[in-house]
């Protein structure tokens, strides 16, 4: 499974991105990824609304390619707990 990750925004507005293979994830991170994908499939997740007091927050885009494609955009204040540790991991790869 391939994960494309992009972080943009923040005060500096610098965009960084990376591509990570799911085999590189720890078992915990793989578990969080699976939970995240399940939530996406069950439509429990949605993109954050705009203009809700998130000025200068980081914006994240995650694209997961596993036969099917899942994509989500979120920011650090709107983030699902299942995503936090996954994003923490992905940020170390930037």
């Amino acid at each position: 499974m391939k994960i494309k990750f992009e972080r943009s925004g923040g005060f500096a507005g610098i965009t960084n991105s990376c591509v990570v293979n799911s085999e590189q994830l720890s078992s915990d991170e793989q578990k969080h990824l699976q939970e995240f994908l399940r939530d996406v499939e069950n439509k429990k997740t949605e993109n954050p609304s705009l203009n809700s007091g998130r000025n200068d927050c980081f914006q994240y885009k995650i694209l997961v390619e596993d036969g099917k494609k899942f994509a989500i955009t979120t920011d650090e204040l709107a983030m699902d707990p299942n995503l936090r540790s996954l994003i923490d991991f992905l940020e170390t790869r930037l």
């Binding site: 943009s8 507005g13 965009t15 705009l50 914006q59 955009t73």
Partner: peptide
Amino acid sequence: RVGKDPQPSHMKDYKKISEDNGGVHI
């Protein structure tokens, strides 16, 4: 390590983008 400052100084360089909430810092 951080790239080059991407800010333009003229509207001729404006284009719609998806990152950074549509380039608000750009």
